[in-house]
């Protein structure tokens, strides 16, 4: 780099750029927070949904599955599983694990009660109704 461009100029660009773009990021975040209620339908977050998210977390579902495309890529996307499979299939599927089919990927048995299964399904239903800009491209996730 040329000698006319000095270290202190570079330092000023760093400080100025970092502060400006961090404040812009905070501003955009503030704006996002105003818009979000219309997109996440938080009025539908019932106690069942809250408990369902807790079950989702404490069974580390994200360790194999993706949820809205984030997580592990070992097992199917579950953000839209409610629409793909419906509530009864989801519950029956979880109860039937592991399949024990030789050589196939296995999902653990979590011994969830019927009430817990209903909570989890409520969470997945609410999740499937988030406005995700039409992601995923099709029902297969």
């Amino acid at each position: 780099m040329s000698a006319t461009f000095t270290k202190s100029m570079a330092r000023n660009i760093f400080y100025g750029g970092a502060v400006f773009f961090f404040l812009l990021f905070v501003g955009l975040t503030f704006d996002t927070m105003q818009v979000l209620p219309k997109r996440d339908h938080r009025e539908n977050i019932t106690p069942e949904v809250v408990r369902g998210k807790h079950i989702w977390e404490t069974r580390d579902c994200i360790g194999c599955h993706t949820l809205l495309g984030e997580g592990a890529y070992f097992a199917p996307e579950l953000g839209n599983v409610y629409k793909r499979r419906g509530p009864e299939f989801i519950k029956a599927w979880i109860k039937a694990q592991p399949t024990g089919a030789p050589g196939r990927r296995q999902m653990p048995q979590f011994h969830l009660t019927d009430a817990q299964l209903n909570d989890l399904v409520a969470f997945l239903k609410w999740t499937s109704e988030i406005n995700t800009n039409n992601w995923p491209p099709n029902i297969e996730g």
Partner: peptide, 25 residues
């Protein structure tokens, strides 16, 4: 300084590439 300036100038708002499909505007 130039490198890390560019890191933050691009990377802070660049967080937005995670905000496409998770319910954000």
């Amino acid at each position: 300084y130039v490198i890390i300036a560019m890191s933050l100038i691009t990377g802070l708002i660049g967080t937005g590439h995670h905000y496409y499909w998770i319910g954000t505007p």
